[in-house]
Design a protein around this nucleic acid. Structure first.
Lengths: 187, 187
DNA sequence: ACCTGAACACCGTTCAAGT
DNA sequence: ACCTGAACACCGTTCAAGT
């Protein structure tokens, strides 16, 4: 029988990636090693290679696993500044849960290159609502996404004061900068 | 004589850090290993530890070496939006030369924590000029710095189109977002 | 003071062998 | 099909020994 030596059920990609994600969330990307992950799963390090091509591929999988857990705000018909805020909040909440992943993401553009991802579609929709003309959509969304990434990573990595009140104020300043900026851009 | 085995002059911190910086600039932070660096310097890996506490300390030294090479625009009396642009351009030029360092920086807040650094003082000066009230200086500069970091890293890491024309356009969009944002914040 | 070699505890990954 | 152990080529770092 092809049964794992460690217990009844065999190793699954699901199990591998969720355990790996847990390691990364708690200890950062540098806390993830194939050998530690295998130990955590109570399995031989080399067994992992049967489910995953290599470490880079594994991190790629972790990223999409985590991305799917990000719940984006629906189009509720609210004014666009409120929708900008709601979207930024969604980024923010996700980043707090998976801080290391966002840092990794900023250094690995492949992960978010596909413009059909919900995250881009949502951003496009809100920018259209804000009056950004169609030929400027790509550029404006690129810049905004980079801004928000920078802010979120700065916060989760400890560049900013970490008491809850100051976090709220910083977030507010960021949102006001963006909404005023967008208004000025299109007005 | 306490003379290096490799040639006339002994190993110096200067030499170590500039060689290390070169490695990081060309191959990213992950291309820097104590052993490769030692090979590059034609020296035993362990000799490095006589000049530097460990790898982390070395990277810290590299960061400040590079930081000193960043030339910030002086106060030329120009209107604040132009000075914002000039400062952002300084960030940008530096980032193009040392892309890997900025990614590292965003994950290591210690490096830029000291508010007496020229970079913060310059930013404060410009924000005062833009009419940001004193009690908001810290917050506004934090947010802006995070935005610019995000944008610069996104660009140097390949999130954005890389043809020169599009780079200029993206930069322009970013600056306009920021200046309009600031104007709206204080107006 | 400055440099070195051997050694230790880690990595990712390949490959041939087991069931 | 799935798992494993031994092996290879790398890491950072300590420590005792050399000049």
């Amino acid at each position: 029988m092809a049964v794992s030596a460690r217990r009844g059920s065999p190793l699954s990609l699901e199990e591998i990636s969720s355990t790996a994600l847990r390691l990364v969330d708690t200890g950062g990307v540098e806390a993830l090693s194939m050998r530690k992950l295998a130990a955590e799963l109570d399995v031989n390090p080399m067994s992992l290679y049967h489910h995953v091509k290599n470490k880079d591929a594994l991190i790629g999988i972790i990223c999409s696993t985590a991305a799917q857990r990000m719940t984006l705000p629906p189009d509720d018909g609210a004014p666009w500044p409120e929708q900008v805020r709601a979207l930024a909040l969604a980024y923010h909440r996700h980043a707090v849960e998976h801080p290391a992943l966002w840092s990794y993401l900023l250094n690995h553009p492949e992960s978010t290159a596909d413009r059909n991802l919900v995250i881009w579609q949502t951003l496009y929709r809100i920018l259209r609502l804000a009056g950004v003309p169609e030929p400027e959509l790509r550029r404006t969304s690129d810049v905004l996404h980079a801004f928000v990434l920078g802010f979120i990573i700065a916060e989760t990595q400890g560049h900013l004061p970490s008491d809850p009140e100051e976090i709220a104020r910083n977030f507010d300043t960021a949102i006001r900068l963006i909404t005023h900026g967008l208004a000025g851009l299109t007005g």
